[in-house]
Design a protein around this nucleic acid. Structure first.
Lengths: 358, 358
DNA sequence: TAGATTTTTGGCTTCGTTGACAAAAATGGC
DNA sequence: GCCATTTTTGTCAACGAAGCCAAAAATCTA
């Protein structure tokens, strides 16, 4: 009996391997069912790790799946489940470096899974952006969405996602949502670290180029920075605080503006690396030497920080790790894991060559 | 009759709008068929722009599609067509900036279409990379693949794509494939431009940091460069040519190596912006002033070029436009458009502040 | 060991679309 | 106005999986 069974299986395998090898489509659940001599429903159960399958059956089916190199068709599954295996990265971050790092992290987490990362840039200055978001969700039924700042802070988008009943993870510097939907960064702490570093080097006149006021991170980084200054008995002089747009160009402008003030600061804390890079240019244009004439601290530690001269001292956010954590959270939650605490990423000061003792 | 028809339609629409509004799933082809009083096959024909539909019918159906906000389900279509609406970007380019720019370009072309961009980093140092590629194609049945250098140059990957019968576009500095599958960049010409610029500024001792010899672009850029030097009666001194890996770190090393030579060049042409950035660091470490002591030319014009000090003179490749063209080519070819000539992108020298008269 | 109970398995339908082919409608020629 | 052609439209079965519920097998109980 057992021999006969095995023989049947062997010949079944051979036949299918030959047929599929000639390009007659892929191996499907039906092929597995036929060869394994079970119903396709049972194969489906094995694929989906249903606990209602006898271990013996499961092993048998799995062996045949492996032998035939069967991979379930994501489109067919999506149709039946009314949910695809796409995970969208919805972003509007002005720093391309930030976005690439995050992509990497997400892809790290997808290793060995069937999820695919799709890119969804989101231009919130465009009036239709919410409608587009909704159409995308309706049409493509993504498994989930990952939102880094600043789209993560948009409550209108959050509402759309909830209304459309799609899973999501928001990465932000404040707790915007419940733990199952949040990854948090301790930007406040990062700002404080920047301040402590500069005051420890003896700086007393420290300027700040912060991001747009509509970003939560702007306030967190600045408050943290002020908190750090206060520890050294210092206050942020209001006219030493200039707003930028988290972009390189805005950093150039902001840097120039600071230099036009009556008293020149000896150090600048920029709200992100892009603006810090811009401030380098402004300082150089004014003929200053770095870091002799001015210490500069950035935020994020995107790849450009290490490529500048002098290499930029910056507050490192583990962006790639955050991306990975966000993707993993999405997967874990879908598996029914209960999340009780928001994951918090604490930044770390990376001291390079752009800061020095005064 | 006409009135009656309209009335029926109106009530049908109302009914469906109400039902779907309550979240009972999306509007499907069946709803359209029912309301329009045609078969779903006819609706399908309208969606797919079949020429065998009477204009009157087409307009009628399209009006109802619009009214109900119907969008076809990509998963169901994919299942029936055995081909998804995903387009994969397969990349291994060491410069993250290059990759982001290309992503943007591809997304530009997808505007208003149903295509989604999925990211497929490809690590060719890993032994399984071809098998993974094959599995991805088999499983997800992408509509097409876009391959920038250097994966584009991999003939083993090209074979897999052809065997699996998936459409693709290869972006390369040489003509690797037929016009329907190729986007070409005139790297040779770019190299020549760099040489002409430097010789015109009076430089006679010019070094070259080139990319890995396994990249076609390395040879094209170098040959073009030598060609340009020859126009000025110069030759590339073999020990003034150093190999890098198209990465920042390799640029630092290569720069240092050049400075260790008996005679110091007065200008460097780096094979890409990343390595040019690395050479800045090596030169600065050696105490040189830029551009006074050394002129530097890069290649690509990735965002970092404009962020450096001095801003990098570089040979601009319109990466974003190339990405857009590649995506558009994929779409056009799928629509049956015949391509007789390979699209060639000719680079343009962007003169900034890193080069000066000697 | 028969019957009750629990565990496993299977059958049939559904998801939303397209393909092959058949049927109906429109058009043309006489 | 009738028949042959050509357009246009419709029917029904895929595509490859999962859901619901019933059937079969295994296990337990007395």
């Amino acid at each position: 009996m057992s021999d006969e069974l095995n023989e049947n299986i062997s010949s079944g395998i051979e036949e299918i391997v030959q047929a599929k090898g000639r390009g007659s489509g892929n191996v499907t659940i039906n092929d597995i069912a036929r060869v394994a001599n079970v119903s396709k429903k049972t194969v489906s159960r094995v694929i989906n790790q249903s606990p209602f399958v006898k271990p013996k059956t499961r092993d048998h089916v799995q062996a045949i799946i492996k032998e035939l190199g069967f991979v379930p068709d994501p489109q067919a599954r999506a149709l039946a489940l009314r949910k695809s295996f796409l995970i969208g990265l919805v972003y509007d971050n002005p720093s391309p470096q930030y976005v690439v790092s995050m992509q990497r992290g997400i892809l790290d987490a997808f290793e060995g899974t069937d999820f695919q990362l799709v890119l969804r840039p989101c231009d919130r200055s465009e009036p239709e952006y919410l409608a587009r978001m909704e159409t995308f969700i309706k049409q493509h039924k993504p498994f989930g969405l990952i939102l880094p700042p600043s789209v993560s802070e948009d409550e209108a988008i959050a509402k759309v996602m909830r209304d459309q009943n799609v899973d999501y993870v928001r990465i932000a510097s404040v707790e915007l949502d419940d733990p199952a939907h949040s990854i948090r960064t301790a930007d406040f702490e990062g700002g404080a670290q920047a301040a402590r570093h500069l005051t420890a080097l003896g700086h007393r006149h420290i300027a700040h180029i912060h991001g747009p006021l509509s970003f939560r991170s702007t306030h967190e980084r600045r408050s943290g920075f002020e908190h750090g200054l206060a520890e050294a008995g210092l206050k942020l002089n209001p006219n030493m605080a200039v707003e930028g747009g988290y972009t390189f160009d805005s950093g150039v402008v902001a840097g120039a503006e600071l230099l036009s003030r009556a008293t020149r600061p000896t150090a600048i804390f920029a709200g992100n690396d892009e603006m810090a890079t811009g401030s380098y240019v402004a300082l150089r244009k004014a003929g200053l030497s770095l870091p002799e004439d001015m210490s500069v601290v950035g935020f994020d530690d995107t790849p450009i920080a290490g490529r500048l001269w002098p290499a930029l001292t910056t507050v490192r956010l583990p962006i790639r790790e955050m991306g990975k954590a966000a993707a993993q959270l999405l997967i874990d939650v879908s598996h029914g894991k209960k999340i009780t605490e928001v994951a918090i990423f604490v930044p770390e000061l990376i001291v390079r060559d752009s800061t020095q003792q005064i």
